[in-house]
Simulated assay, not measured.
Amino acid sequence: MTTAQPAPAPLTRPELVCPAGTPAALKSAIDAGADCVYVGFRDETNARNFPGLNFNRRELAEGIEYAHGKGAKVLVAVNTFPRAGQPEIWHRAVADCDELKADAVILADIGLIDHAARHHPNLRLHLSVQAAASNPDAIRFYADRYGIKRVVLPRVLTVQEIAEVNARIAPIETEVFVFGGLCVMAEGRCALSSYATGQSPNINGACSPASDVRYTETNEGITSELGGFTINKFAHTEPAGYPTLCKGRFIANDKASYLFEEPTSLNTLAILPDLIRAGVTAFKIEGRQRGRAYVAAVVGAFRQGVDAVLAGKSLPDIDLDRITEGGKQTTGAYEKAWR
């Protein structure tokens, strides 16, 4: 006589957290099915401090009103590191998040986290990926000491490692990246582009700021530069990546190659069931510097993917090659086989 096997536990629906670099992108993300959007102020308090992006206070108030009217949430990234002895604009950013009724603020700097916990006790705090907390002890420290409710995990863990972290930190929530640009550096500790531009990604909030980027077209193709330094040369038929030093092509041992990482995008559509079973609370899409078409396409694709998994259906066959960096995709560390 066979013994009946217990039914598998029902899957928990993860939040879809989507980028909004502009008010228009915020509406596009929510209309395409985002559960949350994450945004930043138009200054150096956020790590996507590029011209033409981000929100002033009035725009954020209107964005929060629109999101809440559609049943969605707004998370505000205040995820750079305050200047020593000059924390005022970072303190003001946190206070404004509280006053404008943002659903959470995403913080990286431990001093700013301490300030927010003491002065804004009713404001929900999320730990930015820039804090690089990737193990249960570090995560529990932030939760126990400062009341952090959710941690955005660095893109260095396998799916199994994420599941093990979740099992040890519950009920603290985890958020993982599921699509977009990758960073090969320790999260929040990159200083490469600052050597070429004098602008720190961690303080000024712009990795490879647009003002220092140059593209030059020649008979052979396109040359990209950052701060006067040649980063890459592309043939006319080759997709040109954005000129960040970590994704530059350099000559070593008389051979030109990508020494750190090729231009490529993270895409986890194929492994969404594994990430959901690992107990992840929220799926995060990268790309606040991208336009409305990118936001709508990626959010729509992942909305379909998550809904299919929860309904017990096959994953939809969705091609996102046209909007990936370099026209390439990877599952990154989630399925890594190297050590």
Rank of each mutant, 00 (worst) to 15 (best):
G228P: 03
E175W: 14
A252K: 09
L153M: 07
E62V: 08
F260A: 02
R155A: 07
S211I: 15
E59Y: 11
V37I: 15
Q86W: 14
A67R: 10
T158S: 11
Y258E: 00
D35F: 15
E173T: 08
L320K: 07
E187L: 04
A170F: 12
Q199S: 13
E262A: 13
E220C: 07
R249C: 10
S134R: 08
A196F: 15
Y334Q: 00
R124N: 06
V105E: 05
G312V: 12
A333T: 07
V176I: 15
H115M: 06
D274I: 02
G221T: 05
A337K: 12
E88G: 06
D254Q: 10
P8L: 06
V309C: 04
G21A: 00
D103A: 15
G221W: 10
E187R: 00
K313E: 07
C18M: 10
D98Q: 12
Y242P: 05
R48M: 11
V184H: 04
G205A: 02
G21W: 14
D212T: 09
R277F: 11
R58C: 03
F302R: 01
N122A: 12
G63M: 08
P239F: 06
A117M: 08
V105Y: 12
H120V: 11
A133E: 02
R48S: 01
E88Y: 14
A72K: 02
R42Y: 04
Q329R: 13
L75P: 01
L153Y: 12
P6G: 07
A117N: 12
V74S: 06
A116H: 09
D212M: 14
R150E: 02
P273I: 13
I276V: 13
S128I: 06
I64A: 06
V184C: 11
P23M: 05
A282G: 06
Y195L: 14
A138V: 09
G85F: 14
A117R: 14
L107A: 09
E59I: 08
V306I: 15
T2R: 11
D109G: 04
A297M: 12
P171I: 07
H68L: 10
I172C: 06
D212I: 13
P273S: 03
L60H: 03
Q199R: 13
A333V: 08
P136T: 09
F260Y: 14
R83S: 08
G33S: 05
A186S: 12
K101I: 07
P19A: 07
A34N: 01
E187H: 08
A47H: 12
S128P: 13
F55Q: 01
G248I: 07
N135K: 10
K247M: 14
A240Y: 08
K255S: 06
R155Y: 04
N54V: 10
F177T: 02
H91C: 09
L272P: 01
G287D: 03
T244P: 02
F50Q: 01
I172M: 05
F250K: 04
G33W: 14
D321K: 14
P316T: 07
I222D: 00
L11T: 03
A29M: 11
K73P: 01
I323R: 03
G180H: 11
I285D: 00
Y142Q: 03
P51Q: 00
E65L: 13
D43K: 02
T230E: 11
G241V: 02
A77M: 10
G181N: 09
